[in-house]
């Protein structure tokens, strides 16, 4: 068939018609959501390798190397304990140091993932402009790096909890689903801020303030009962639904015996935890996917 066509059959076609005739596709076209998810799955090794590499690189210049993975949360806990435990004495909470560190480490996971996620597109423009891969790999790798950090922090936390005399119970196992749900929540949130950060460079400056406000609204540093005492009823209900407060309360409930909780019903806490993880995980992913072609532009 090829050799019989002496006259050019393509004469008179516009470029677009020519492309359609031979089944060419638009370069850099956004794949369907299902295709995108599949492609992302085939890149899981890249995500894992990249997050590992980032973790190693962040300590490569330090003399103590990866020991900092444990030293950083320990030092953090020590500083906050000095101020909130010794200087501004908190007596209303039994085992305050464990209460504080549980909140601090759980919150830090989300905080750092969001902070680094905001720059995960803008900071990797070179990579994005050079190679083809689903861009969601980058915020997901950021989340995974912080997840590994969290695991190191949890080892420290478990140590603190045991040393301060809490009993080891079956309820500790609940920490596993809590952390996994939080990771799903963070994955969605990191993808969402990655897209927002790629559009609005100013977000990087605003983020620390947003995160600090969020931290104070999550009862990390003080007794959560303060919300109930000082806020009108509707505002307390609002704080109860705050995803970070939810994950922190669940973690405290799993590890500590006498920790005060704001949410009175455990069922409500778990429903919030699952709901936030699904809504943010799926919503963040779809929001990020919708911007897929634009990330190379910077």
């Amino acid at each position: 068939m090829a050799n019989t066509a002496l006259a050019d059959p393509d004469a008179g076609l516009t470029q677009a018609q020519l492309a359609a005739r031979y089944g060419l596709r638009v370069a850099g076209e956004r794949p369907s959501l299902a295709d995108y998810t599949r492609r992302l799955w085939t890149y899981r090794h890249f995500i894992a390798a990249y997050s590992n590499a980032k973790l190693v690189a962040s300590f490569s210049n330090a003399r103590l190397g990866q020991l900092w993975q444990v030293l950083t949360p320990l030092t953090n806990a020590a500083v906050y304990y000095l101020i909130f435990g010794l200087v501004l004495k908190q007596n209303s909470i039994p085992n305050f140091i464990a209460y504080l560190t549980a909140g601090l480490f759980i919150f830090n996971f989300t905080q750092t993932a969001v902070q680094n996620g905001t720059q995960s597109i803008t900071g990797n423009l070179g990579l994005i402009r050079a190679l083809h891969f689903p861009r969601a790999c980058l915020p997901l790798a950021v989340m995974l790096t912080q997840f590994q950090q969290l695991l190191a922090s949890l080892v420290v936390l478990v140590g603190i909890v045991l040393v301060t005399g809490e009993p080891l119970t079956v309820e500790w196992l609940l920490l596993v689903p809590v952390v996994l749900l939080q990771a799903l929540f963070n994955a969605g949130l990191t993808m969402a801020v990655a897209r927002a950060g790629s559009k609005i460079a100013d977000l990087k400056q605003v983020m620390p303030f947003l995160l600090r406000t969020w931290m104070y609204g999550s009862g990390v540093l003080y007794n959560v009962a303060l919300f109930e005492e000082n806020l009108p009823g509707w505002a307390t209900r609002l704080v109860e639904a705050n995803p970070m407060l939810v994950y922190i309360e669940l973690a405290r409930h799993a590890l500590l015996e006498g920790a005060p909780l704001l949410n009175s019903s455990m069922l409500q806490l778990w429903l919030y935890a699952v709901g936030w993880a699904v809504v943010m995980g799926v919503g963040g992913f779809i929001y990020f996917w919708r911007g897929e072609q634009e990330y190379g532009r910077g």
Binding site: G28, L131, R297
Partner: peptide, 8 residues
């Protein structure tokens, strides 16, 4: 880069 689909 535009042909490679890296830059829209």
């Amino acid at each position: 880069r535009a042909i490679a689909g890296l830059l829209p």
